[in-house]
């Protein structure tokens, strides 16, 4: 995957540095994400994982280095533009819309792909009906894909159990035909069975050709799901490689154990 002949990466981050005031949040971080690849990003708290997500999704604009998606430089692009280029994300603390039903949540995720104008909506033109039909059917399939096919589509999004809400957030992101999907601690608060089936689902997502960027603290999920792992510590990339390489990397072991001992 990392040979010189590899196809153009979905996401290429090179020499990325961010500092807030005097704090160096990220320093010269470089990695790339290919199609149908799952790239794990791990590191102790404060390592810069969230900052990295915020730079890629366009929330942090003041950085050095470059971030490109499918060959398009993301510098200066608004978060919405970046979403339009094919980047979707979920949030560490679930952010669902409290006044939307399960299926409406997934329809909202298709905002950029539903082609109906205000006129179509107001006067229910044939195009409105066609577009709604396409969108609702897609929503039903995406819901089944994330394992929510049995849920009543009219139920409120926030009435789902916690694990269901996490899955629904992923469904909302998937519905918008992403090229890159960023998952921010999707297994947080899940038990072993739930996180195992979540891992299976993430593998299936990658198998559809989507590049997945996964930030996660649950090492079982990270080690069993990721193709490659990037390890951050104090904003620096201290290791990069397959799960086996990372597991036996002395710098990684030191960073994690050192943290424990130091605390």
């Amino acid at each position: 995957m990392t040979t010189a002949l590899a196809p153009e990466p979905l996401l290429a981050v090179s020499d990325l540095s961010v500092s807030f005031g005097g704090v160096q949040a990220l320093a010269e971080v470089s990695f790339s994400l290919q199609r149908d690849e799952i790239l794990g990003i791990i590191g102790p708290n404060g390592a810069g994982k969230t900052t990295l997500f915020n730079v890629v999704s366009g929330l942090v604009k003041d950085y050095r280095g470059s971030v490109a998606m499918g060959g398009v430089d993301l510098r200066g692009k608004s978060p919405q533009r970046i979403v339009g280029l094919g980047l979707r994300r979920t949030f560490q603390n679930v952010r669902l819309f409290k006044s939307l039903s399960v299926i409406d949540t997934v329809l909202a995720g298709q905002h950029l792909t539903i082609r109906e104008s205000v006129f179509d909506s107001a006067f229910r033109t044939p195009r409105y009906h066609r577009q709604e039909s396409i969108a609702v059917q897609r929503a039903q399939q995406v819901l089944a894909f994330v394992g929510l096919g049995h849920v009543a589509p009219g139920d409120m999004a926030t009435s789902l159990p916690y694990g269901g809400q996490r899955r629904l957030e992923i469904a909302r992101a998937l519905a918008g035909y992403p090229k890159v999907l960023m998952l921010d601690e999707p297994a947080a608060g899940m038990n072993a069975t739930e996180s195992r089936s979540l891992g299976t689902m993430i593998r299936r997502i990658a198998a559809t050709g989507i590049g997945v960027l996964l930030v996660e603290h649950d090492m079982r999920v990270i080690m069993s799901v990721c193709d490659r792992i990037v390890v951050l510590n104090f904003g620096r990339m201290i290791a990069q490689g397959t799960p086996e390489e990372i597991r036996s990397d002395p710098a990684v072991v030191r960073a994690y154990l050192g943290d424990e001992v130091g605390a």
Partner: peptide, 23 residues
């Protein structure tokens, strides 16, 4: 419709709405 759902999203959570590509 599309516009009504976008309004509901904005009313509920602007950050999540922006992450779905809603201006």
């Amino acid at each position: 419709s599309r516009i009504g759902r976008a309004w509901a999203c904005i009313k509920d959570d602007e950050i999540a709405a922006a992450a779905s590509g809603i201006p």
